[in-house]
Design a protein around this nucleic acid. Structure first.
Lengths: 126, 126, 126, 126
DNA sequence: GTGGTCTAGACCACG
DNA sequence: GTGGTCTAGACCACC
């Protein structure tokens, strides 16, 4: 359900964060669902528990998941972002801009990008 | 024409690479144009010369610029990438995917993204 | 300038965070000032570098300090909190409430508390 | 009359302790009053009985409540703390100090704090 | 059982 | 030189 790409330059904990976000966005993880414990996930991903813990803490800071002492970690009921949206949105826009530059150099035009967007949103809504 | 954001989490040399790509894509830099020397640019950007040199090396690796010994550095005539396009394209797709996830969490729908794309391509063609 | 109380139940990294906040609030650290490097501080406090790093990261998340790659960590120019103030303020109010309950049980009245407040603010303004 | 916030970072047993202290301070619980049994309270709060037991133990340690074997648990007649006041007072002062630092960063001045104090003490005396 | 904290020691990218 | 990431292994509080 979640794979780590060791060759990726993205830090492992970030890959976990991204992966969880995607699972939640696609509905594979619903609000209230219990996440695998830090130890479990570290075992299945063959990764150090601290690394998983760091990912979970990051997700919690964004209000995406919540931990209940001694019980475990759960997908938060309200996925509403806890403020500072403005800054994050600005960062997203910037990333998107950079990506468009890169796409331009690879000869990827607006049509192809649009196709990718549509494909992605079709996945989500299923 | 090229601004460095010291506070950005992106490495400075990457910012230079991105900036140059953007200038070329927008036509502000045409094939054959001479680039500022490493020293010049490091002076204007208030950046370590090694950093600029690293950026230039990266750009040369992608065939975007060319260094003629004793003459200087120039925008390459053929913007065609020297192979390895497949890998870069795969990376682009992956980045795009992650970005769509992030956008989803921020409530940015396909329409907004499409708008951003159109806006960007209008800039380029001007 | 910053002391760790090993007997305190507060985590070391939190003590560092609190200590830095206090130094900044009192003006001992001015915006733009360089903080001791992670390694330096870990050596002077006799604490693991990771612990100091965690404290610095926490401070950076609140926009109180900034790290410039390869150069070090500095007190941020704008101490303005990056949003989410509302939530933090609510937490502060709650903590204050709990503290007043505790004070009530120890026979500390409003006058004493007011005295402490005045004393503290006199320190700051000096 | 006593609410548990599962999402709070404060341990549940601490929340119970704090809540009981507040009820007593406000006079809602008078010396001699009988407290709900551990089982009762664990049922109404939807909390593990061990957790409630731990809270009661803590309250008894501070001489705030008393357990009479076979009869139940009662609010102690003398709210006087059994020594160790000095240490608790020192801790209170320290907490207060930290809180003032935090308040300083959030732009909360002495006037606002004073207002909160007054408001709280008005509640108590009612 | 759960997550939170800390240590020790390592490697890496960046400037 | 700087901070960022990761591992391995340990202890603790909480439920």
């Amino acid at each position: 359900m979640l794979k780590i790409n060791e060759r990726s330059e993205a830090p492992i904990y970030e890959q976990i964060v991204q992966g969880m976000k995607e699972l939640i966005l696609k509905g594979a993880l619903q609000p209230g669902d219990k996440l695998p414990s830090v130890r479990e996930m570290s075992a299945t991903l063959l990764v150090n528990p601290n690394t998983v813990a760091k990912a979970y803490q990051e997700l919690e800071r964004y209000g995406i998941i919540q931990t209940l002492r001694g019980k475990g970690t759960f997908v938060a009921e309200t996925s509403a972002a806890p403020g500072m949206e403005k800054e994050r949105l600005e960062r997203l826009r910037h990333s998107f801009h950079q990506l468009l530059v890169e796409a331009g150099f690879l000869g990827i035009g607006p049509e192809q990008l649009q196709a990718w967007i549509d494909e992605f949103h079709k996945e989500i809504k299923e």
